[in-house]
Design a protein around this nucleic acid. Structure first.
Lengths: 112, 112
DNA sequence: CTGAATACATCGAATATCGAGGTATCAGTA
DNA sequence: TACTGATACCTCGATATTCGATGTATTCAG
């Protein structure tokens, strides 16, 4: 049984990739490892998640890519476009709003 | 165009409802308003979200319901079962892990 | 020569969120 | 009486996206 829509993960891959690519260009396989690192091992995204998201972001115009041969292998490096930076800003705002709302709900002792 | 899988909302309705029902019984329509309140207006869930989630949680054994006539209308009050309390605990842990991971990723200045 | 790591990619399954629409009762008011 | 808005429940279809599995090919270490 393939677990889909896993709790709290919708939109997360996109946000993380945009964040990682903000200011530096990186390639897919590198991003797989980086996601684990920058989230303190809390979140792990497989290649089956990373690559499709990368492709869809590029189709959208949020990313641009260039192929670069490195030591015989070919890597596809991605970087943010202006559109991608805006998308990151918007997504971050969404995230902040929702996480704030949930923090309030979980934190407060709701019932007198 | 029906927007599905909206960013960051997967699992959120379930978590919020379980949290609200932790310690008090409430009915559907009341929960719609309560979600807005306890999240500080940050999150709003329509009836088309609330009722299906309520039904699915009951089918799961996380909630139990009883019908109660109030002033001519009939309300369906829901309350947590032991299973529901465990589910709330587990979901909260998931949430905390993921929100921690994202906070780390967004906060840190990743690129030297 | 073999196996692990690197690097890209695609596929099918599952699923739960959302807005819209539907029914009915009750309270207030014109 | 008739109308309106709030209360209270419900169902339905669209759909995007996450995930694990699987596949290909190259490089490097032993």
């Amino acid at each position: 049984m393939a677990k889909t829509n896993p709790p709290f993960m919708s939109g997360v891959p996109e946000l993380l990739l945009l964040r990682l690519l903000d200011g530096t260009e990186m390639y897919g396989y590198e991003l797989v490892r980086s996601v684990r690192e920058v989230t303190g091992e809390a979140i792990s995204l497989g290649e089956g998640v990373i690559y499709p998201v990368l492709h869809s972001l590029e189709r959208n115009g949020a990313l641009r890519s260039r192929r670069k041969p490195v030591g015989g292998r070919t890597r596809v490096y991605y970087s943010l476009t202006a559109k991608g930076r805006k998308r990151l800003k918007d997504l971050s705002a969404d995230w902040t709003r929702i996480q704030g709302g949930i923090a309030t709900a979980l934190g407060a002792s709701i019932h007198a």
